[in-house]
Design a protein around this nucleic acid. Structure first.
Lengths: 243, 243
DNA sequence: CGTAGCTTTGATGTAGGTCAAGAAATGTGG
DNA sequence: CCACATTTCTTGACCTACATCAAAGCTACG
């Protein structure tokens, strides 16, 4: 794939107009392509001098383990997303990352990243923007878990996933392919798997959405948006914000 | 105050060694000093072309409102912290920010910030690092609310605050001054104010810590760390990480 | 075609919410 | 420096959303 057509470049290009120099710097960063199988951690907590990755295809989840053996999933990385930026900046990973589908990713070495930032500040700004977008999602998740009911936060999360996938052309208004199990959903939303199951049944019986057979289908998109108090604007940005 | 002695410069200097050029760029960024009284929002959701701020003194809380009138506090900004970086990058604020003590802050204009990044990439990297540290805290909060009990997450949060304040010289192992009400604590931790009160009583009666009279006092620091499963490393960084 | 991971459902338990109301602290104007 | 108002804290009684436990039916794929 040409660098300019990669999901990563597409995403960044939504924010800054990248010059050919910027794109050149990106191709340096974006070097070693790797395939990673399901179920083996790509990053694990406490690991030193961890590389970062840019996801080309597949889904990854970033999570933290707690002493009791419970897990909290913090975020998912989808095609075009950066994985492990914090691990590079802090020199130590503070979380784990696990592919939940087979993944193709490009390894980004810390030096390359920092050199690219120094050489092309616009790229640094673009990466900062992408990191901020991810943080905005984590924040929205925090709000969900803190103050929304199980049903609201499930709906909210599934809408958010849809919006992200739409950005990279993997979803439309009717729904999207979704490889998540109810266990993963539970660990994302701070609920038990049993309760997630009941919530999903309720959403299905209310003709709001169907989560089944590896697919999310919205039956009544507007009603789901209303239920979840979903802000459609927050992941949409018209054109490049920075010229 | 000399720029080099500001809490902001101190914090960034912990990450990158800033050259005099970097410091010069910072003084451009770090320009208009303002005083803000308690209880008037500095940033509010939906506001366009919002400035960002660097806090010189005082505490600010960033929060989101939900339709039911409930509130989730996402983070606190303490002296040296950046406020509203996302608002600048996205051109629209996605949250509110409210001083909970009188605040002195320097306004950072979007242009100045972006110019500084272009002129001195090291500064951009440093700001990216600071933003990542803040995100790490939001993540830790998410984990708390998702998977820790009320007692654990309260302990965790109070330890984290202590660690942050220690970085800017406002806390030691015995405790710190803390202007938060139990209502603020509740909205931070996704609990009700009534329950926070019970949790604090329990922590007090177990001789773990006292939250009273605008002060947090640790009676048995080690026990609190153990209870909260607090990772002391994650906010400590020995020296500049990036040379 | 067996076995391991998912999904579904029922029964029961509990952490934390809500409501209510008094006590203490804090602020404000005279 | 006091009286009054307002917020903040504290506690008790009761309730509910979600967890836990248990067990049966699915899917899938080696």
């Amino acid at each position: 794939m040409d660098i300019q057509d990669s999901p990563f470049a597409r995403k960044l290009a939504a924010f800054v107009q990248l010059s050919s120099a910027d794109i050149g710097a990106m191709s340096d960063v974006y070097k070693r392509r790797r395939k990673v199988p399901v179920g083996r951690d790509m990053v694990y907590q406490g690991q030193k001098d961890q590389a970062a990755y840019i996801i080309a295809s597949g889904w990854v989840c970033s999570y933290k383990m707690l002493p009791g053996g419970t897990r909290q999933i913090v975020d998912f990385q989808l095609p075009g997303d950066f994985l492990g930026l914090r691990s590079v900046l802090f020199r130590t990973a503070d979380h784990n990352a696990l592919p939940i589908t087979p993944v193709e990713a490009s390894e980004v070495l810390p030096e390359d990243l920092l050199n690219a930032f120094t050489a092309t500040p616009r790229l640094a700004t673009a990466v900062l923007w992408a990191a901020s977008r991810d943080e905005a999602m984590v924040v929205e998740n925090l709000v969900s878990i803190g103050r929304r009911t199980a049903t609201e936060r499930t709906a909210h999360f599934l809408l958010e996933l849809g919006a992200r996938l739409k950005l990279v052309g993997l979803a439309d208004k009717t729904g999207y392919k979704c490889p998540l199990s109810q266990y993963l959903l539970a660990d994302t939303l701070g609920l038990s798997a049993v309760h997630i199951n009941r919530v999903l049944r309720e959403l299905r019986e209310e003709n709001l959405l169907i989560f089944q057979g590896g697919r999310v289908t919205f039956l009544n998109f507007e009603a789901v948006v209303a239920l979840a108090d979903f802000d459609r604007a927050y992941l949409d940005h018209d054109g490049p914000l920075l010229r």
